[in-house]
């Protein structure tokens, strides 16, 4: 009996503690005129927290909304589309003023976006797009163009090896089936495919992680002795590749050149140190632009349909200059 009461009491305390967080939110109404910013409620469904990039994206957005005084309801979908659909439906139920989300996958949003449209709640896409035929389902899409990132990487490679006879390339892919991986591969292949001297001798997935990049590079270095260049879909895999190259007694950046995408701090450091040769930026700092779109919607204006994130590329010299200001 005692054990039971203690167990009950403990469980009760635990339950109360878990629900005893900060005060819950107020349901917003459907706007008629511009509402004061502090009455706005925005529902945001994030893909997950699968990488440093993603977390930087979340922190930036949460920070920007806090600065603007707008309430942000945040939900983490743990990389599952069904969780995002549930979250969006829940936001519709809570009658938020704007719904923003980064779709984990391109297809399959028509049903729930139609519900949002029927409820009169505008939808903004961040970071990734949806492939709906009906583009009235969302107000604006703010994000990078992954295919373009692949192309920029390809263009640097073409320029760098303009005088070479044949170039052996190893591609470290992102997670199989993920949009950034597919698009960055596509963009790159489009550009270098024009010239026969470029050959992708091996293309394996490192799952966007350092450990994956290291393990794959290790194995490929042994079975393909003459690699000229490694193209990694993100910085982390490139950093893993660097360790594998050094362990094999070679010098990254010189014996084997490396091109990556993202421009996170660790990657930029490696670039400044000369271990990576070229980085295409993929910026997660969407917060300010998102707040701008939300205030535009609130004021009754129509934001631009497609807003491409301002991104650039970095060479080794540029990295040394830019490094002190990197936020993520």
């Amino acid at each position: 009996m005692k054990k039971r009461s203690i167990g009950l009491a403990a469980a009760g305390v635990l339950l109360l503690a878990l629900t005893g967080c900060a005060a819950g939110g107020d349901a917003g109404g459907t706007g008629e005129g511009p509402k004061p910013l502090d009455e706005l409620v925005v529902g945001f469904s994030q893909v997950g927290a699968e990488s440093g990039w993603r977390t930087a994206n979340t922190t930036d957005i949460q920070g920007a909304f806090e600065d603007a005084g707008i309430e942000l309801k945040f939900s983490d979908a743990q990389q599952k589309q069904e969780n995002q659909i549930k979250a969006i439906r829940s936001y519709i139920q809570q009658q938020v003023d704007v719904i923003a989300f980064s779709p984990v996958v391109e297809s399959g949003w028509d049903a729930v976006l139609n519900e949002a449209k029927a409820a009169g709640i505008p939808v903004v896409l961040t970071d990734r797009a949806v492939d709906s035929a009906d583009d009235s389902l969302y107000v604006s899409f703010l994000g990078s163009d992954f295919v373009e990132e692949g192309k920029k990487a390809g263009e640097w490679v073409v320029e760098e090896y303009a005088d070479a006879d044949d170039v052996k390339i190893v591609q470290l892919e992102g997670t199989t089936g993920a949009a950034p991986a597919i698009d960055r591969a596509e963009g790159f292949a489009d550009v270098i495919g024009a010239d026969d001297k470029f050959e992708i001798v091996a293309s394996q997935t490192g799952d966007f992680t350092r450990a994956g990049g290291k393990q794959v590079t290790e194995a490929l270095l042994k079975s393909n002795p003459d690699i000229d260049l490694i193209y990694a879909h993100n910085d982390d895999m490139g950093l893993g590749a660097i360790e594998a190259i050094e362990a094999a007694g070679l010098t990254p950046g010189e014996d084997i050149k490396i091109v990556t995408v993202d421009a996170v701090k660790d990657g930029m450091q490696a670039l400044a140190d000369g271990k990576i040769n070229f980085i295409v930026e993929c910026s997660p700092l969407l917060g300010e632009q998102l707040v701008e779109i939300v205030t535009q919607i609130n004021d009754g204006e129509t934001p631009e349909k497609r807003i491409v994130t301002e991104e650039t590329t970095f060479t080794q010299e540029q990295a040394v200059e830019a490094l002190p200001d990197r936020q993520y």
Binding site: D207, R210, A211, G240, E243
Partner: peptide
């Protein structure tokens, strides 16, 4: 060992 191998803690993927 896994963390030391990449000299970084990756709470998501380790």
């Amino acid at each position: 060992i896994l963390t030391a191998n990449q000299t970084a803690a990756d709470a998501n993927n380790t």
